[in-house]
C-alpha cells in the first residue's frame, strides 16, 4: 500500500492516543476551571436580575450548557461508534464508550436544572412537553447504551451492539432541538440561533457562552481521562501498557 502522505492514523494507534491525550488533559482541565470561574462570576455578579423572573433565570447558565452538551455528546458518541463499527478503529470504540457516562450526566443535569427552573417560572417541576420528553428519552438512550455495553461479555460484540443502538438513537437529537418549533408546547423557542442575533442581553450571553465552553473543556478532559483508563484495561497484556505501568518487563 502506498505510504499515505498524512499519517492520520498515527494518533489512532493506542499508545500514541494514550500519550497524546495524557499530555492534553491538564490543559483542558485547567481551561475548564478558569472558564467556570469567570462564567459563574459573570453570570452571578455582573449580570443584572431579569426584569420578569428576577434571579431564578440564573439557572440558565447551567441548564442551557448542560442541554447543549447532552445533545452534542450524543452525536459525537454516535460518530465514534459508527467509526468503530465500520472501520474497526479500536480507539474510536473506546472513545464512544468513554463519552456515554459524561453525556448521561449532562442530560440528567439538564433535566434537573430545568425542573428547578420550571417550578418558580411555570409552576411545575415536570410537564410532558415535547422538549422535556425527548430529553428524557435521550437519558434512557444513554443509560441503554451503557447497560448494553456492560451486559455483553465479548468486548467486540458489545461495542458493535451498542454502536447500533447509539446510531438508532441519533434521530432523537434533532427531534429535541426542533421539538419547540414543531409541537410548540410549553418550552420556549431557541433564543440563540446561528441565523438570527440572540434575543438576550450581551452580558447574559457572555456568561452563557463562558459556561458552555467551560462544560466543553470539562467534557474533553473527563472523556479523554476515561478513554485512557478504558484503553489500559483493554490493552493490559500489551508491551506498551507494561512499559507505561512501570512494569519491569
Amino acid at each position: 500500500m502506498a505510504q499515505p502522505r498524512v499519517q492520520w492514523f498515527k494518533f489512532s494507534s493506542p499508545p500514541n492516543f494514550y500519550d497524546l491525550s495524557g499530555r492534553l488533559i491538564p490543559w483542558f482541565g485547567g481551561l475548564a476551571v478558569v472558564l467556570f470561574i469567570t462564567g459563574l462570576y459573570t453570570g452571578f455578579v455582573v449580570a443584572p436580575p431579569d426584569y420578569q423572573q428576577g434571579d431564578s433565570y440564573r439557572i440558565m447558565f447551567i441548564h442551557v450548557p448542560a442541554a447543549w452538551m447532552s445533545m452534542f455528546l450524543y452525536v459525537l458518541m454516535a460518530v465514534y461508534a459508527a467509526i468503530g463499527l465500520i472501520w474497526r478503529v479500536k480507539t474510536a470504540e473506546v472513545m464512544a464508550k468513554a463519552i456515554a457516562p459524561t453525556g448521561a450526566l449532562f442530560t440528567f443535569l439538564a433535566l434537573w436544572s430545568g425542573a428547578l427552573w420550571g417550578k418558580p417560572t411555570w409552576g411545575a417541576y415536570w410537564v410532558w412537553d415535547a422538549r422535556l420528553t425527548s430529553e428524557l428519552i435521550l437519558l434512557f438512550l444513554y443509560l441503554g447504551y451503557m447497560a448494553l455495553h456492560g451486559a455483553i461479555e465479548d468486548r467486540q460484540r458489545a461495542a458493535n451492539a451498542s454502536a447500533v443502538l447509539a446510531l438508532a438513537g441519533v434521530v432523537n437529537v434533532p427531534i429535541i432541538y426542533f421539538s419547540v418549533k414543531w409541537w410548540n408546547t410549553l418550552h420556549q423557542g431557541a433564543s440563540i440561533t446561528v441565523t438570527s442575533s440572540p434575543t438576550m442581553e450581551t452580558v447574559m450571553l457572555t456568561a452563557l457562552l463562558l459556561m458552555t465552553f467551560a462544560c466543553w473543556m470539562y467534557s474533553i478532559a473527563v472523556v479523554l481521562w476515561r478513554a485512557r483508563l478504558e484503553l489500559l484495561e483493554r490493552e493490559r497484556r500489551t508491551k506498551w501498557v507494561l512499559e507505561r505501568m512501570g512494569g519491569k518487563a
Binding site: 434571579d55 431564578s56 439557572i59 447551567i62 443535569l109 434537573w112 418558580p120
Partner: peptide, 20 residues
C-alpha cells in the same frame, strides 16, 4: 436568597457541583 429563589438556584448548582 437569590430574590427568594435561592432554593431553586442553589439546588441546581449544588447538584451540578456534586455530579461533576
Amino acid at each position: 436568597a437569590m430574590g427568594g429563589h435561592g432554593l431553586f438556584v442553589w439546588g441546581s448548582y449544588g447538584v451540578t457541583l456534586l455530579v461533576l
